[in-house]
């Protein structure tokens, strides 16, 4: 059998099954950030770890082929810009910078607490994409450097 990049077949199969559960867990942490421990930062790191898991199992060439890296790279600064837009929207709709603009639901509901849920999702996307792009660049760099040895 031809030598393929990445780990063995067992590790690849387990990764293929489990990575979606990890991503789902990350989204759960982000969406319940205002009710349970967690939030945008923790959920973002979980999603970045899921992508890292795929990259360790399959090798970075496969990941580069599968995922649209430049889109991910653009998603990170645009998430930062969205955060700023939410702040300016607070000024535009009365109140101050970063004032609440979304309707606050009732306590202990998933869709409650106004701005917090929206900002949690934005921060989750930003942290996940930023960390994954950095790790992907580190992997790609080793690829370049290994050429002249």
């Amino acid at each position: 059998m031809k030598q393929q990049p990445g780990l063995t077949l067992i590790a690849k199969t387990v990764t293929r099954i489990s990575v979606w559960l990890i991503v789902l867990y990350g989204f759960y942490i982000i969406f319940h950030g205002h009710l349970t421990p967690g939030g945008g930062f923790a959920g973002g790191v979980v999603i970045a770890l899921a992508f890292l898991n795929v990259m360790l199992a399959y090798g970075h060439e496969t990941v580069t082929r599968w995922l649209n890296i430049s889109f991910m790279h653009d998603l990170e600064p645009s998430a930062g810009a969205l955060f700023l837009t939410m702040g300016i929207l607070g000024i535009a709709l009365g109140g101050g910078f970063l004032a609440n603009v979304v309707h606050r639901g009732t306590l202990f509901n998933v869709f409650s607490s106004g701005n917090i849920l929206v900002l949690n999702i934005i921060i989750g996307v930003k942290v996940a994409m930023g960390l994954f792009v950095v790790v992907w660049s580190l992997a790609i760099f080793r690829f370049f450097e290994g050429g002249d040895k």
């Binding site: 930023g130 960390l131 950095v134 790790v135 660049s137 580190l138 760099f141 080793r142 450097e145």
Partner: peptide
């Protein structure tokens, strides 16, 4: 983020 940046510098 800073750890990632230090690693990049070291490499």
């Amino acid at each position: 983020g800073i750890t990632a940046m230090l690693i990049a510098l070291a490499i």
